[in-house]
């Protein structure tokens, strides 16, 4: 079995970092996790001498890492950007997943590629997880918007909740829109008519007195 590699992981997303760490440890690597903190990244790299650095592409620490090879020419373990490994497919996949990687010059390309592919897979998995969460959250607020529109209709049309809902549904059918979209335009129009009634907490209680 090839010797384990030292991987430095720089990621502010705690859950994602844990996912990547777990997968790399399972492959037999040593992983050092680091949140963006006031501690100097230069010192971190000098102390742990990582073979590979995996960093969130959106991290503000990227410039510091990127410049290390250029500024510290006397550095015994020059860290180079993964792009220098001439593997456009993996690079493109990494960019799309938001993974940046720096590797020690001279490391076997195959071993590095395996590590980066693990990181890409975990970053992608985390992304779809977050996407699902956001969808749920949007559905929640959608329901709140519909409640709000119903409340406004009940007040302006002097009708009950059932009638207000039927009105929304009919509008949606007429316009071939989703109920939430119709609710948005109802809120827009009715709140402009009576801006004082736009109490964001009133949706739960139904019509204002």
């Amino acid at each position: 079995m090839p010797p384990p590699l030292n991987v430095l992981l720089v990621d502010d997303e705690v859950v994602r970092a844990a996912m990547v760490e777990e997968a790399l440890v399972a492959e037999g690597h040593r992983v050092i996790c680091r949140l963006t903190s006031p501690a100097s990244l230069n010192e971190m790299v000098a102390r742990h001498q990582p073979d590979v650095v995996i960093i969130d592409m959106e991290s503000p620490d990227r410039d510091t890492l990127d410049s290390m090879a250029l500024l510290n020419r006397e550095n015994p373990r020059p860290v180079v950007f993964f792009a220098d490994q001439h593997d456009p497919d993996t690079l493109q996949a990494a960019l799309k997943a938001g993974v940046s990687a720096y590797v020690v010059d001279g490391l076997l390309p195959g071993r590095v590629k395996a590590i980066i592919e693990v990181a890409i897979a975990r970053f992608d998995a985390f992304q779809s997880m977050r996407h699902e969460l956001e969808k749920t959250r949007n559905q929640l607020t959608e329901r709140k918007r519909i409640e709000r529109a119903k409340g406004l209709l009940m007040k302006h049309q002097d009708c009950d909740e059932e009638q207000a809902y039927r009105m929304l549904r009919k509008l949606a059918m007429d316009r071939s829109q989703r109920i939430a979209e119709v609710a948005d335009s109802v809120i827009d129009i009715l709140e402009r008519l009576s801006p004082r009634s736009s109490d964001p907490t009133s949706s739960k209680q139904g019509p204002l007195p």
Binding site: M57, E58, P60, R62, D63, D66, A83, Q92, L95, S100
Partner: peptide, 15 residues
């Protein structure tokens, strides 16, 4: 963009 290197890579890759 949070870093110049990220901005550079995104322009180079067409993102």
């Amino acid at each position: 963009e949070n870093a110049w290197s990220t901005l550079r890579d995104k322009v180079a890759a067409g993102l």
